[in-house]
């Protein structure tokens, strides 16, 4: 038997969603449902072994080639991604990047110095730069909604699913930046050196997508 591909999978919601997808595609995913203490989980049915990781680490592992494949959100790709192939939109984990401001605030019409808080300073910075807007980006790690409440920022750039958290904190979305969903990414060299196995896994994911 050929050596399995190694897949870096974002822990949490994307993890369960991917397993659902692989099951629909016809693979047995029980080894990952009962994880125990192992760190590398073989999924022989899918031709992969799975490493669970935090989202930015998924990208790091795939870029460095210690993992051949990765499943990670488009948000993380936009913020951290550089060189890998992004071959499939897995469609789950769907949400969007949005700019939200304090209710009643005229964010675009002011000459004041504006500050924007975000967990995604690159995404936010690129979006404002593309519009020729000079704003100061402040990186926040936790609940970004807090920054405008505390008076640290005039607006936030964050991932929005329903908008309920925003509303609860007196914020309103004023611009959509881009849609976000989970993606299958492939290491540059793995795509060339392990082509048949990579294509088999892509086909399995496609089969799962068609079932849903």
């Amino acid at each position: 038997m050929r050596e399995p591909l190694r897949l870096a999978l974002t822990k949490g919601r994307l993890e369960t969603k991917l397993l659902d997808l692989l099951r629909r595609g016809g693979a047995d995913t029980t080894p990952l449902e009962d994880k125990g203490r192992r760190l590398i989980h073989p999924l022989p049915d899918a031709g992969v072994e799975v490493v669970l990781a935090k989202a930015p680490d998924v990208i790091t592992y795939v870029e460095h080639g210690v993992c051949d494949l990765g499943v990670v959100g488009k948000d993380t790709i936009l913020e951290y991604g550089q060189s890998f192939y992004e071959v499939l939109d897995l469609r789950f984990g769907a949400c969007r990047f949005a700019l939200a401001v304090r209710e009643g605030e005229d964010f675009f019409g002011t000459y004041r110095h504006r500050r924007v808080a975000s967990k995604y300073p690159n995404v936010a910075g690129d979006w404002f730069a593309a519009r020729g807007m000079d704003v100061e980006i402040i990186r926040i790690e936790g609940s970004v909604e807090l920054a405008p409440l505390l008076g640290l920022a005039d607006a936030i750039v964050d991932i929005v699913e329903t908008g309920a958290t925003l509303r609860a904190n007196g914020l309103v979305p004023v611009a959509d930046i881009c849609p976000v969903s989970a993606r299958l990414i492939v290491n540059l060299a793995a795509m060339k050196m392990k082509r048949t196995r990579v294509q088999a896994f892509v086909a399995l994911c496609r089969a799962g997508l068609e079932e849903s």
């Binding site: 870029e63 460095h64 080639g65 210690v66 060189s83 540059l188 060299a189 793995a190 060339k192 050196m193």
Partner: peptide, 9 residues
């Protein structure tokens, strides 16, 4: 050019 075991060209 790629060699097995190296993650990039």
């Amino acid at each position: 050019g790629y060699v097995s075991g190296a993650g990039r060209a």
